[in-house]
Amino acid sequence: MKRETMINALLALGLLAVPLWALIADEPFYITLATRVAIFALAGVGLNIAIGLGGLVSFGHAAFFGLGGYAMGVLASHAQSYTPMMEWPFLIEGSNSMPVIWITAVIASGLAALVIGALSLRTAGVYFIMITLAFGQMLYYFTISWPAYGGEDGLSIYIRNGFPGLNTLDPIQFFAITFVILGLALVFSTLLAKSPFGLALNAARQSSERVETIGITPYRLRLTAFVISGMITGLAGALFADLNRFVSPTMFSWQTSGEIMVFIILGGTARLFGPVAGAALFIALEQVLGGLSDYWHIYLGLLLLCVVLFARGGIIGTLAGEEARHD
């Protein structure tokens, strides 16, 4: 077995073991933390398809994360108040069923990714980083000043949405849902990378001209990757909103985009389990350092700096000790 595969297996087991231990030790908070890791990792898996596979450094994935969150917030708040979302031209009711919310979140963020991607992919390099940031900021300011769904106050949903056959209010059952989804996303991501589409995308990342000469349009490949990437991050946003039972414009802020990116780089760009390792480490640091001092951001900053400077290829890159797939 390759060393990286072993590390991945250990990570998956670890993410499963912590909440199980917490369940036995009656420390439900650690289940919540593990759920958080799983959700952030899922957002990272989405972004990693754009960054790692497609070479598209998006600094605006908070847009999709937030849209997913608001898909949950808007649907659930209408269900909560028993008011329909729309009565004309046809009736749309709110919903508090997770599958309905997930589908809505995925479609909404997919459509947004299609529009944002179609415009942004006309640019490249730093311009691409910045134009995606601009779209994220647009949505951020829009949600703050749009009064219908709470503006800056956000939306509180009092009861977590339901999933047929499960009690989602039970932390371990909700964790199970997120863990399974994360697992499916990881499998999907692997299959995608090995598929003809993934190979072409990877080739387009390395040399756009070469791909064009064999009759493939890199623009379409990249746009497809961007949309898939946005959809997965949007799904993570819906789950995150359900974890907190709350959505707010901070989900759209540029810091959120930055954090999702940090998970990936911390774990190892283009590594399958990079986002999982990154999110787990980030949240663990937040927990441990947060208790040490009021000024714990300094330590967090220093640690992140050390990882970039001395642990190239992120955690997995360092542990696995072989060249990362990205160049």
Binding site: P28, F29, Y30, R36, G154, N244, F246, S248
Partner: peptide, 16 residues
């Protein structure tokens, strides 16, 4: 000053 962190802390304080 982050809502999601506040929710997480509240969960921890109530649950743990």
């Amino acid at each position: 000053r982050k809502p999601d962190i506040a929710v997480q802390l509240a969960d921890r304080m109530v649950q743990s």
